Lab assay of single mutants.
Amino acid sequence: RNRTTFNSSQLQALERVFERTHYPDAFVREDLARRVNLTEARVQVWFQNRRAKFRR
């Protein structure tokens, strides 16, 4: 699988949700994935990586 590149509008939407919660539930992830046209799995991994970055 190739690395996913996120465009600025996708990142903006992802970061907005991250500000609200670092652990979005499945419903939030599904909705977000639909809105930014990504798979739920990509959204889930983005949050895992974003939390790791946040802890650094």
Rank of each mutant, 00 (worst) to 15 (best):
Q12S: 11
E40A: 10
N7F: 03
T5D: 13
V43Q: 00
D31Q: 10
F54P: 07
T5A: 13
E30R: 09
R35L: 06
F18D: 02
F6Y: 10
R1L: 06
R29I: 15
R56Q: 15
T21C: 09
L32D: 06
R55E: 14
F54Y: 15
A41L: 06
Y23E: 08
N7Q: 04
S8M: 08
D25C: 09
H22A: 15
F6S: 06
R34N: 07
V43S: 03
V28F: 01
R50F: 06
E30M: 09
N2A: 04
N37G: 10
T5Q: 12
A33H: 00
T39P: 13
V45Q: 15
Q12G: 07
F18E: 04
V45R: 10
N7P: 02
R50L: 07
A33P: 02
A52C: 01
Y23N: 04
R56E: 15
A52S: 06
R42H: 10
R29A: 10
Q12C: 09
N2C: 02
L14K: 03
F6E: 12
T5V: 13
E30I: 08
Q48A: 07
N2Y: 09
R50S: 05
R35D: 04
R1D: 12
D25V: 04
Y23Q: 07
L14A: 01
L38F: 02
Q10G: 03
Y23H: 09
Q10S: 04
L14I: 00
A13W: 09
R16N: 10
V17M: 09
R51F: 03
R34S: 07
F6W: 05
R56T: 10
F47D: 00
R1N: 15
L11K: 05
R29M: 14
A52H: 08
V45T: 10
R51E: 00
T4W: 08
N37D: 09
L32S: 02
T5K: 13
R35G: 07
R3V: 10
F6K: 04
R42V: 15
F18A: 05
L32C: 01
D25F: 03
F18I: 02
R56P: 11
A13C: 05
Q44K: 12
E30T: 12
T4M: 07
A52T: 08
N2M: 09
T4C: 11
R20H: 13
R56Y: 05
F18L: 01
L11M: 08
V45L: 10
R50P: 04
R51Y: 02
N49G: 05
Q44F: 06
V17C: 11
R34K: 13
F54W: 05
E40S: 10
T21K: 00
D31G: 06
R42F: 11
R3N: 15
R51G: 01
R29T: 14
W46T: 00
P24M: 04
L11Q: 10
K53G: 11
S9C: 05
V36K: 05
A13N: 06
E30Y: 04
K53H: 07
